[in-house]
Nucleic acid binder design. Structure first.
Length: 583
DNA sequence: TCGGATGAATCGAGTTGAGG
DNA sequence: CCCTCAACTCGATTCATCCG
């Protein structure tokens, strides 16, 4: 590994859209001047699809160069705000037809996906300083292999064997289990952190079981985190190569009056015999017989606020492990500190778990960590001394919590980040409900959907059993509890008081058993600001019901105290005083 | 369902314009 | 008039679910 100056920070290694190997091959062949596809794209596709003549001429000209080196921009191009109207302005866009062949080309995001795919499999190589790509020897061999030939398949299997996330999926399936994309997604990459969202399967199945039949298809289609999607796509590739077999998985999820109710998830996978063989070879019996793994700095975090810092930290941990045989966690910590990264042990452990979940074999024996893989050399970009990598406040807070929380599973620490990301509302909603049930020990349900609160929880066997109507909100700047949201809560509290089917036919309040007679309301978000207090007081006066707001950080701390036995749900009950709950 | 498709959040380079 | 630097603009990048 060596440092290199760069200007662009890109993301590689995690592929969202592409699924067809035929299209992958076309993309690789664009880099092979002797291929048919190269000529087709240059002479037919680009001239007909790229309307802007300046761009058209430029793209044809670079495809006519002697050495085919394309920049990211030339390959991927750009989009517009109304994406379906974005003009074709790049090579990969023109190389692949869209679904239904309406426009004749794909958009920049899918083009980016194909680029990442070809790069992840080692068919093209990234040149940092010019932000461009060239074909590799393996890529050229793939390009030249006959379609559908044994050689082609061999090349693809070899390539996927050195792509860590694919090996991770095979490893998770190794003992023959039938796992869904959610099982896999939860254990893939830096799962849980921003950029690696995974939906809690239990909550999803429960929501599915309790949904109206007409809504089930939509839930099954649309409820999917990024990690779940990565898992689904990798599973799909492996299925095509015969290494896993995709088949739906059924679950018995009892609902009210239907104790044997069945639900299914279509995206589930089992390893095949051939898959096991490939996995054994990828693992090898010694470091030297293992298939070398392609790891990139650009895949060590994706959507994180602090991705540059975190990627470099993770890359350095890997580098430390590559250089040493076997190290204690404290030794890794010391080494990192010498490199300017002062981190608590739990952060390093968390990073190593993420590296393992990315498909890198790191053995943990007692207190010792040892890298079992042969990692191909990769570049850690260096943005120069002017831009020092500094830990952000958010990273600081997360590492503090990693240190503090002994009982709460650390995957929940990412709620701190998720709660600030307004695009992750659904994940936050589901995870918070899961947390209340799994960690606090409340009973209840994630509800969601129209005219229902996000969740309803309650106690059983407390001195005074009570129910809480929960609303969550992911918000970047601090949540001020706008009046619209408060009004919505007012409606839920009142619906629960009157319980009139004609007012709300979905009767969401049926979650609460008759033993629960006291109710609270609660808003959960990253942090609160503005006049949330006035809204809480107003709600309390109108509904005669006590409520509160709860920050995600306090949610975690409360969960820790419950697990440690220093807080009870009865004590939590007394904290609903129309203000912010602090433990 | 499969294989992308979509609107949007965010980030950072470039532009503007107030202050000196 | 020219320089500095923060505020703001706008295009590029990357989701996190969505969907024909």
């Amino acid at each position: 590994m060596f440092l290199s100056m760069v200007s662009k920070i890109r993301t590689f290694g995690w592929v969202q859209n592409p699924g067809k190997f035929e299209n992958l091959k076309r993309v690789v062949q664009v880099f092979d001047r002797n291929s048919k596809v190269h000529n087709e794209v240059k002479n037919i596709k680009i001239p007909t699809l790229v309307k802007e003549s300046k761009i058209q001429k430029e793209l044809v000209a670079i495809m006519n160069q002697h050495d085919l080196i394309y920049t990211y921009k030339e390959l991927v191009g750009t989009g517009t705000s109304i994406r379906s109207e974005a003009p074709c302005d790049a090579i990969i866009q023109a190389t692949i037809a869209d679904q239904g062949n309406k426009k004749g080309y794909i958009d920049n995001w899918s083009s980016d996906g194909f680029l990442r795919w070809a790069h992840a499999l080692g068919f093209i190589e990234y040149i940092n300083k010019s932000d461009s790509f060239v074909i590799t020897d393996v890529g050229l061999a793939y390009s030249k292999s006959a379609d559908g030939s044994a050689i082609e398949k061999e090349i693809l299997i070899e390539a996927i064997s050195s792509y860590p996330p694919a090996i991770r999926i095979l490893t998770l399936l190794e003992d023959g289990q039938h796992l869904t994309k959610f099982d896999l997604g939860k254990n893939l990459g830096f799962s849980g952190e921003s950029g690696f969202t995974s939906l809690p399967e239990g909550i999803l199945l429960d929501t599915l079981a309790n949904a109206m039949p007409k809504d089930k298809g939509e839930i099954r289609n649309n409820w999917e985190g990024s990690s779940d999607k990565y898992a689904r796509m990798i599973g799909g590739w492996l299925d095509k190569l015969g290494l896993v077999k995709q088949g739906k998985k059924e679950f018995i999820i009892p609902t009210l009056g239907k104790p044997d109710n069945k639900e299914f998830i279509s995206h589930a996978f089992k390893i095949t015999g051939e898959g096991l063989k490939v996995l054994r070879r990828a693992k090898g019996s010694t470091k030297f017989t293992r298939v070398p793994k392609r790891v990139y700095w650009e895949m060590l975090a994706t959507n994180l606020t602090d991705k540059e810092y975190v990627r470099t930290r993770r890359a350095l941990i890997l580098e430390i492990l590559i250089k040493a045989g076997s190290l204690k966690i404290e030794q890794i910590q010391d080494n990192l500190k010498k490199l300017g990264f002062d981190e608590v042990i739990e952060t390093i452990e968390n990073d190593i778990k993420g590296l393992i979940n990315t498909g890198i074999f790191i053995e943990i024996k007692g207190r010792f960590y040892q890298l079992k893989d042969h990692i191909l050399q990769f570049v850690i970009p260096n943005r120069g001394v002017t831009k020092q990598l500094v830990k952000s406040e958010l990273e600081e807070k997360k590492s503090e919590l990693r240190h503090k929380l002994k009982y709460v599973p650390h995957e929940y620490i990412e709620l701190i980040e998720i709660a600030r990301n307004s695009t992750q509302d659904r994940i936050l909603e589901m995870k918070v409900m899961e947390f209340f049930m799994k960690v606090y020990g409340y009973r209840g349900k994630h509800l969601g959907g129209s005219r229902k609160p996000d969740g309803a929880i309650y106690t059983v066997g407390s001195p005074i059993d009570y129910g809480v109507i929960v609303d969550t909100k992911a918000y970047s700047g601090g949540y001020n509890l706008p009046i619209g949201q408060a009004d919505e809560m007012q409606r839920y509290v009142e619906e629960n008081q009157t319980r009139n089917k004609h007012i709300n036919p979905n009767e969401w309040w049926k979650v609460y058993p008759s033993s629960v007679t006291e109710f609270k309301f609660l808003f959960v978000s990253g942090h609160f600001k503005g006049n949330y207090k006035a809204q809480l007081t107003r709600l309390n006066h109108i509904t005669n019901c006590n409520g509160a707001v709860l920050s995600v950080e306090e949610l975690l701390i409360g969960g820790e105290m419950i697990k440690a036995g220093t807080l009870t749900l009865e004590e939590v009950r007394r904290k609903f005083n129309n203000g912010e709950i602090n433990f």
